[in-house]
């Protein structure tokens, strides 16, 4: 992958301050991220974060290394675009009149989104998809007058058996578990 957007997923310790450590690292090292999401993973003491990072391969390599350098970061995966699912949710509040409400509903149906609130002058629509789908949806709604947009940022997961940013439990007996990929140091 050359210059462009990379989706990274990190498994991190779920404890106070971890978001601050990670966002602070992005800020002070001058990395650009277009979105960052965080939430509980399948394990109680671990959270998963998804970053969408802009930059070339060298930048993404540095981002990955700097993430690994943070003590609270357990595992980082740079997702392969073709083999992963990336989703974002957005709530869009758009102006609606009796004349155009049905048109808005029609567009929403085409995008397989949901009307979650209908007011006298507005409609709120919930849409899920990849970023470009949401971008296109918002563009189509612009002529009606967009009042408010709330986007979650991307969450991502690899397809098939592979588990994204997984803790490696195969290493037993050792007091410390090395969770870097085995070939990590050689593929710098």
């Amino acid at each position: 992958m050359a210059i462009g957007e990379h989706t990274l997923v990190a498994l991190v310790l779920h404890q106070p301050g971890v978001l601050n450590r990670i966002s602070g690292m992005f800020r002070r090292r001058g990395f650009n991220i277009s979105s960052l999401t965080v939430g509980q993973s399948e394990s109680e003491d671990l959270a998963r974060m998804t970053f969408v990072v802009q930059g070339d391969d060298a930048t993404v390599e540095q981002v990955t290394k700097q993430l690994y350098k943070l003590v609270d970061v357990v595992r980082v995966t740079d997702l392969d675009e073709d083999n992963s699912i990336v989703r974002e949710m957005a709530l869009v509040k758009v102006s609606a009149t009796n004349q155009n409400r049905s048109e808005i509903i029609q567009i929403s149906e085409i995008f397989r989104s949901k009307i979650v609130d209908v007011g006298a002058e507005t409609v709120v629509i919930e849409i899920t998809g990849d970023q470009s789908k949401i971008d296109r949806f918002i563009i189509l709604l612009q002529p009606f007058g967009i009042r408010e947009v709330m986007r979650t940022g991307a969450v991502a997961m690899s397809r098939g058996n592979a588990v994204t940013a997984q803790i490696d439990n195969n290493v037993s007996g050792a007091s410390r578990v090395n969770n870097r990929p085995k070939d990590y140091d050689q593929n710098l």
């Binding site: 991190v12 310790l13 690994y68 943070l70 003590v71 609270d72 970061v73 357990v74 595992r75 803790i167 007091s175 410390r176 578990v177 090395n178 969770n179 870097r180 140091d185 050689q186």
Partner: peptide, 18 residues
């Protein structure tokens, strides 16, 4: 007696092929 930090394990030994 020991330290358990899942996200921290510095590599000390160099890779043989490198």
């Amino acid at each position: 007696e020991t330290v358990e930090i899942p996200g921290y394990n510095p590599t000390l030994e160099g890779n043989m092929s490198q």
